[in-house]
């Protein structure tokens, strides 16, 4: 380990990112701008998450990386190998054994603990972006707590589909103050955002970091007559028989037969072991 500084980034950069993380934790849900660095991977592959993880990693940490719940997909394997090489930290696929978990699109089914950090890869941190394209205006709306527009989006969903059709990146209110985008996790995972673990969100291309401290109130937005519902596919895991975990749908043959399988591979493997 002489070619790289520990965890790839140089120390002043890590200090800058840690400062953004601390500010994010102090103001839950607020998007803190940070000077995102060029990483040895393209934007959209988790450059934000990787920088946050790099800033949090300690030599004794145990790292787990998941992509859509799975430990064995390209993104997860590459990032895990990356940190094994540039930081020399131990890696694991077991949720319970990890001290830092970097994730894309899922929260693990295994309940997290207070000594764990969950790092999310975020493509678009601004929940109001597709409703209001101007960054100056969305910042002002956050500052003034003008979130009527967020409900306009949910209204449009119901008007068009008869129910709130937003099934991922479901907007939620953090600590009764900021509406935030929980990254594209399925809305099934939204209730898990109230967690004993520290949750950090890194958006590399958009240069934003935000955070949810442990045990912070997170309320998914809804209407009184159309309450929030943590939905999942109506089925049972074909491998482990789980009924209460988030399921991936798989087309099994040319006749259109469908099977379901736990999206969290570690959870599924644990149940079968």
């Amino acid at each position: 380990m002489t070619d790289y500084n520990f965890a790839y980034l140089d120390e002043p950069t890590k200090k800058m990112i840690r400062r953004a993380i601390l500010k994010g934790l102090a103001v839950p849900g607020y998007q803190v701008p940070f000077a995102s660095r060029e990483m040895p991977m393209p934007c959209g592959w988790g450059t934000g998450g990787v920088q946050v993880t790099a800033a949090c990693l300690m030599p004794k940490d145990v790292l787990k990386v998941i992509d859509q719940g799975a430990d064995d997909t390209t993104n997860a394997v590459s990032i895990r190998a990356f940190f094994a090489r540039v930081a020399g930290v131990a890696t694991t696929t077991r949720t319970a054994k990890a001290s830092i978990i970097q994730t894309r699109h899922r929260i693990p089914e295994t309940p997290l603990r207070e000594d764990q950090i969950l790092v999310y890869q975020v493509p678009i941190p601004e929940p109001l972006r597709f409703l209001e394209p101007r960054e100056t205006e969305t910042r002002r709306m956050h500052a003034l707590e003008e979130y009527g527009l967020m409900h306009v989006k949910l209204y449009e969903d119901i008007a068009r589909h008869g129910a709130i059709a937003t099934s991922y990146a479901y907007p939620a209110m953090v600590n009764d103050r900021y509406v935030f985008d929980p990254s594209p996790i399925p809305r099934f995972d939204n209730p898990k955002l109230e967690s004993p673990a520290i949750q950090l969100f890194g958006a590399g291309r958009e240069q934003r970091i935000y955070a949810i401290p442990p045990h912070t109130r997170v309320v998914s937005l809804d209407f009184e007559d159309h309450p929030f519902e943590a939905s999942k596919a109506d089925g049972v895991c074909a491998l482990c028989g789980a009924e209460d975990s988030y399921l991936d749908e798989i087309v099994a043959d040319d006749a259109g037969t469908r099977r379901f399988q736990c999206s969290d591979t570690d959870w599924c493997a644990e149940r079968r072991a």
Binding site: G148, V152, Y155, E156, A159, R160, D222, F223, E224
Partner: peptide
């Protein structure tokens, strides 16, 4: 808002004022 339905356009000020009942 040209990409939001007529109902959403009329409802925006209500929702901004705290109306939370879709019906």
């Amino acid at each position: 808002r040209m990409n939001v339905s007529a109902g959403g356009n009329v409802g925006e000020r209500l929702m901004a004022g705290g109306a939370r009942h879709y019906g």
